[in-house]
């Protein structure tokens, strides 16, 4: 039962990644693309956690934590660039 629901969850999260990637390509301006990147890294964390349950290995949590950290830093840096024209002033 858990194996089947994990397969369904993989399909759902993959569709979510595809949709946010569509917004990343299509998005009319920069904040829409930043929002799409934000959604994309959160969906990547979801895929890594699902893969950890599926393979039964706890190795993926460090990767998920690193992606969460770097994704947040990237979003903040891009927003600061749009707001101020510079990242570190």
């Amino acid at each position: 039962m858990l194996a089947i629901s994990i397969q369904i969850a993989f399909a759902l999260v993959a569709a979510a990644v595809a949709m946010s990637f569509w917004r990343l390509l299509r998005g009319p301006d920069a904040p829409n693309r930043i929002l799409a990147l934000d959604t994309l890294y959160i969906n990547t964390i979801a895929i890594l956690v699902l893969l950890g349950i599926h393979l039964g290995s706890a190795l993926f949590f460090e990767a998920a934590l690193l992606i969460a950290l770097m994704g947040f830093i990237g979003t903040v840096a891009l927003c600061k660039y749009l707001l101020r024209g510079d990242i570190i002033e």
Partner: peptide, 22 residues
């Protein structure tokens, strides 16, 4: 059952969030 309910809830919430993005 609890685990698969949680997994399906989480995946459908991620799906709905990206659907809202579109």
């Amino acid at each position: 059952f609890l685990l698969s309910l949680l997994v399906l809830t989480g995946a459908s919430f991620a799906f709905i969030g990206s659907l809202g993005l579109i």
